[in-house]
């Protein structure tokens, strides 16, 4: 390596040998790449949903009447609370209290499990009413968006569990970051699909 190269790359070490600023955020930078990608996808889906609604406002309005807003609202509360527990888990690991951190992580994923149960009840009611993935554009998008989100909850529970087994600071922060992303996506999905009409 020439002296010039060493100089140039040395001088910019702070800037580019890093992750372009992502390393300043809690958790592993690659998790932030994932979070950003996820937000783009869910954002695109929500905008697609709004766009499809413009094409068929009546159909969307009729179908939306059959959604369970109460279940959606309760699920928002569940995820918000679960997210709070994830923050507690980080605080605990920051103060070196591994046991407590594990406890909060388990409680956070328990919140995820409750979310999934409520989601299943919701889906069950739809299936019982004869509504499926192919019933209408509204329900295709409803099932796709909430289904994708529910899969992320499942994945998130898995991540929190893995992190609870190896609760280093970076691990807990990374796992919690994913969990908060799942939380945040739901906070946007709920008004757009359930409330706006």
């Amino acid at each position: 390596m020439t002296a010039q190269t060493q100089l140039s790359s040395g001088a910019e070490d702070n800037d580019t040998a890093s992750w372009g600023g992502l390393e300043l955020l809690p958790g592993h930078p690659i998790m932030w790449v994932l979070i950003l990608s996820e937000l783009v996808v869910f954002g695109a889906f929500l905008l697609t949903f709004s766009g499809a609604r413009v094409v068929d406002p009546q159909g969307f309005a009729q179908d939306q009447m059959q959604l369970d807003r109460l279940a959606g609202g309760i699920n928002t509360l569940v995820l918000l609370t679960s997210g709070l527990f994830a923050v507690f888990a980080i605080q605990a690991v920051n103060t070196g209290n591994i046991c407590r951190s594990r406890l909060w992580l388990v409680l956070a994923s328990l919140g995820g499990a409750i979310f999934l149960i409520i989601k299943m009840i919701e889906y069950r009611a739809k299936f019982d009413a004869g509504i499926g993935l192919e019933s209408s554009t509204f329900f295709t998008l409803y099932f796709l968006i909430t289904g994708f989100h529910a899969l992320h909850v499942v994945l998130g529970i898995g991540i929190l569990m893995v992190v609870a087994i190896w609760p280093s600071r970076i691990n807990v922060e990374t796992g919690a970051a994913f969990w908060h992303m799942v939380d945040m996506v739901w906070v946007l999905v709920f008004p757009v699909i359930y409330l706006v009409r």
């Binding site: 783009v40 889906f45 192919e134 998008l141 796709l144």
Partner: peptide, 15 residues
């Protein structure tokens, strides 16, 4: 294939 693939394909393949 089922119609929902259109939505999945549209969003992900654009990206």
């Amino acid at each position: 294939t089922p119609g929902y693939w259109q939505w999945i394909g549209n969003v992900f393949s654009t990206l």
